[in-house]
């Protein structure tokens, strides 16, 4: 894989400049309606946090962590909401919007007639998705600090973790989108996304599931994301986060590679 990626990265400055021009296009296209959409992406996880984390949390009481510490249910749920909002924010941009731009707006058909290449389009779109995702994450972390669900220092560490989560899901979503035939196919993706949201140790510790299911859950990407961010916001020590980071970096690399290859095939028939 490295030999495939390396030659393209040789001309790093040209690649980054051209990817940046794709981001710039999106900034220029930003219109007032879009801001409402951005707002909804932030409000949704906040509503979950308040209704389930705080509301249901009052009934559930405190939860024991693997290291024996007791935390409130809201403290337990908040990082999971952050991880899934990073996922949702990135996916919204790299699935629906990306697919629409490629298939219906024919936007990339115009771009590839310039020096910009499919890999750079993929990188630019992912970068743009992450600007959006990072804004959600930062706002959500601010709320967590305000509600005393984490400390400022931990929140500052959690932000890059959330950004990584966004990058990984964004790249995966883009790769999946290149296989989509029509909007109907996105229903399936929505279901998959919701299933992940419910079962990735978000509301219930994964240890509560039967062993087989537990193992299954542990290899899903959102579980790794929740695990990573929860470890940071709750201040769990050890090296367990390293596995999560490696998992997400690999997911991002594979997603980006598949997406740019598929785009090349679709755009350069």
């Amino acid at each position: 894989m490295l030999t495939l990626v390396l030659p393209r990265l040789v001309d790093v400055s040209a690649v980054s400049r051209r990817s940046a021009s794709v981001v710039e296009r999106n900034v220029a296209a930003l219109k007032s309606v879009y801001w409402l959409l951005l707002l909804s992406g932030f409000v949704e996880p906040l509503l979950y946090l308040l209704s389930i984390g705080v509301g249901v949390g009052a009934l559930v009481g405190d939860l024991p962590l693997p290291d024996g510490r007791l935390v409130s249910y809201a403290e337990f749920v908040a990082p999971a909401m952050l991880a899934s909002s990073a996922m949702t924010g990135a996916l919204a941009e790299t699935t629906f919007n990306f697919f629409g731009k490629m298939k219906y707006m024919k936007l990339y058909d115009g771009m590839i007639a310039t020096p910009v290449r499919p890999f750079e389009i993929a990188l630019g779109e992912l970068g743009w998705a992450m600007l959006r995702g990072s804004a959600y994450s930062a706002a959500f972390l601010a709320v967590m600090v305000a509600l005393h669900l984490t400390t400022v220092a931990r929140a500052l560490t959690a932000l890059p973790a959330a950004v990584l989560v966004g990058f990984a899901f964004g790249a995966l979503g883009m790769a999946v989108s290149t296989f989509m035939r029509s909007w109907q196919d996105f229903d399936l993706m929505g279901s998959a996304q919701f299933t992940l949201f419910l079962f990735s140790g978000t509301f219930v510790p994964a240890q509560a599931y039967p062993t087989l299911l537990h193992w299954l859950v542990e290899v899903t990407p959102l579980y790794r994301s929740v695990h990573l961010i929860r470890g940071v916001t709750l201040g769990v020590g050890g090296w367990a986060w390293l596995l999560d980071v490696l998992y997400l970096v690999a997911m991002m690399a594979v997603g980006l590679l598949v997406a740019s290859r598929r785009m090349g095939r679709l755009l350069y028939p």
């Binding site: 400049r17 710039e24 220029a28 219109k31 707006m105 115009g110 771009m111 310039t114 020096p115």
Partner: peptide, 29 residues
């Protein structure tokens, strides 16, 4: 160093007329 005018217009519908040119120019650096 090429200019391409395709058979079917693929202008950027989310941008204005001027932005279609300025944004496109940025793709060329």
């Amino acid at each position: 160093r090429l200019g391409v005018c395709p058979q079917l217009d693929n202008l950027d519908p989310e941008l204005t007329v001027r932005e279609n040119l300025t944004v496109y120019a940025r793709y060329f650096g």
